[in-house]
Design a protein around this nucleic acid. Structure first.
Lengths: 223, 223, 223, 223
DNA sequence: GATGAATGAGTGTTCATTCAT
DNA sequence: AATGAATGAACACTCATTCAT
């Protein structure tokens, strides 16, 4: 009567965690881009059927937005607060910020999102606007506050904040793009060490921003 | 068929077909990405029919590869030579290099190629390898020589060249990505001034690399 | 489970499920047609879950059939009897019949059933046959008897009963279709007044059927 | 290399007539309804592939509109003119109109369109509006002119044109609905003879509208 | 009995690719 | 060489139906 295999017993049940779908979507979006990722594949990787995905996310685009929210936008708040409570010099704060960014975003799969956005922004203006609003704008404010803190305390000299913010953003964006595009194709001896790179960039930046030229470069000497 | 006298003024091209197709394809690929670009649109922009495109390029992928190959070529050699003949301090050379890069690549449509590569590298590993070989590698050598010149002359202090090279590359890559992706979606008051940004980056970098701290930053040097 | 005292006021139905589902389904099928009605919507309107619907009806098609069967029943019998006992001229009887049809069927939601049948008959031949048997056939006999009464009494002249019956049916069917389809889309100044239309049709018909040309058309008799 | 059948040699060429698609669409829409008709089936019946259909019609809805235009809307003009040039009494004109309607629309596949519209109007308000504008409205004007002609010539008595127009429309609509829905399920002995029905309706109507009661009913030749 | 999470076949539409002309 | 009509494999999304709970 039913020569087809006995049909898997209606796989998992419970609450097939939208979380699993978000994880799968993140991985695939980053790997193949938004357009080239098929929702069916996302569903399959999450272990559910295509229909199930649409039970939780009304469209592919909303799925993407949810991925962004889950992985970046939603985390900015806690980060904001944490950096606000930082005790130490502003130079240390900048270094700490870059390091924690690397650990929480840069080195995680979430970093792929930024690459994705940079790659596809022009085709999905709505997504780009969403990202601008939910990530760029708050992130910009966060960095600006960091720098302003140093200026206010007299630790940094007066800065053109617009340029200075971009000086912080640039190495991060570069690192992400590198990691997610050409980096994956480079031979291992050409690989860029992200932490060393970030440290180096921090050194350069801080040396340029600090009022006292004696600002020690590396970790060593926090007096 | 057309005995009407003076020969129709749209005699136009003749054999230049592949070139026009490549130009059209470059523009569209940069603007919309690989997946979102329709071959029909490429053909239309080149003034030919869809079928004709496939006469010259066996598939969309091959067209893409041809676009990249076509637009990567030679430029580096002449640049290499020009920078080799530069008279002046190495600091000036670095600044000159960044400026001329902006004028010859960064601000021209050619910059789109890099954006394209960064965006699609993962889907075209073959292309990425090609780009690595043809651009990254020689570019890396070029920058390395620039820096080495400063070190050898004693103008720069001893450098970790690997890191230093990436410090030069990062702002360029960042600028391109910004310009070609999120930048186009940002409100005008958020726009980044590329030259100011490059100058600023050069200041920071050189301040970090130069042996004498008295290295004048930008134009005047604010005592 | 719910020891809270006075019994929740939404004790509501109990076992009336199938009936509520049929009501909901009737309304939606009439409004949107068979194909465009989603079972989920039917269930929701009946206040139950999608799964529950399938507990009572094995498929959407069976639900549809049940709706039609449920709403076609009996009414004809009482009507048959009532008209059989009518005292008055046959012309009055015909007019009375049309008016009471409008009041009991035409203007009520039950009219939707006929629209439904007319619309979906081809996709549900089984239903169409059922309707033919349960409604068309008895209705035809009823009308035939009405007309025969007039012929027998000498009030009407000899008639081609087949045609005459259709002359009665036609305005009713037309009215229903109009009301349930294009009528709902027409601007209010184009709306058809059903009672006036039926009266007018009765006038025309009776004028054609009555032996004495003096048959007064409407109520008053226009001098 | 290619074990699949040699592939039909890229069937017909030339101009795979949108006409064939329109015919196929008409037949299928009428047979199964708008929603239940799959575009692939339409294409198949026209002997082309699904993609080809979209070469000529940008969407299923536009295909439907084209069917309506082709089969009804487009013909109203010539009909309008023809009836305008009619020589004879207005009673004859009304009879002629009904007959020619039957021959050009009623008995042809085009008649299915009206059934379709009546059935699906509520689900596709845009289509209904289109039909109202392209068919109902002009048709209404046409009939109104017909009747006005009789009133003006003194052949008809003063009429409530709104009701009178609907008295003409009703039998046509009824006939179509009957033919395309229940009619297809009825046993042959119950079948309605459309021409006889229309004649009968015309008789009834004209008897009601004509000033001189002596208007002979049937064909017999109006002395 | 009742639920609602899960399924997967099916639909309209797009687009790279082919090929007779 | 060049065309453009034709193709068909995809893909996002829907919805009737199932079934573990």
């Amino acid at each position: 009567m039913s020569p087809s295999p006995p049909a898997p017993p209606r796989q998992r049940r419970k609450q097939a965690r939208p979380g699993e779908l978000l994880d799968a979507a993140l991985a695939l979006f980053v790997e193949k881009g938004f357009a080239a990722t098929r929702v069916e594949e996302v569903a399959a990787r999450a272990g559910v059927s295509k229909g199930t995905l649409f039970l939780y996310f009304p469209s592919k685009e909303e799925l993407f937005k949810a991925v962004v929210r889950e992985n970046i936008a939603g985390r900015l708040d806690e980060w904001n607060q944490e950096l606000g409570e930082f005790q130490g010099t502003s130079a240390e704060l900048v270094r700490y910020g870059l390091h924690s960014w690397w650990e929480r975003i840069g080195m995680t799969p979430a970093s792929g999102i930024t690459k994705l956005i940079m790659s596809e922004a022009r085709n999905f203006p709505e997504l780009a606007a969403f990202y601008e609003q939910e990530v760029i704008e708050p992130g910009d404010r966060l960095l600006r506050r960091l720098l302003q803190r140093g200026v206010d305390s007299g630790e940094f000299r007066p800065l053109d904040l617009d340029l200075a913010v971009y000086s912080l953003i640039a190495p991060m964006i570069f690192l992400l793009m590198w990691k997610h595009s050409l980096g994956v194709c480079l031979p291992s001896d050409k690989q860029l060490d992200p932490v060393a790179f970030l440290d180096n960039q921090a050194d350069l930046l801080l040396r340029g921003m600090c009022r006292h030229q004696g600002e020690p470069k590396g970790k060593p000497a926090p007096r």
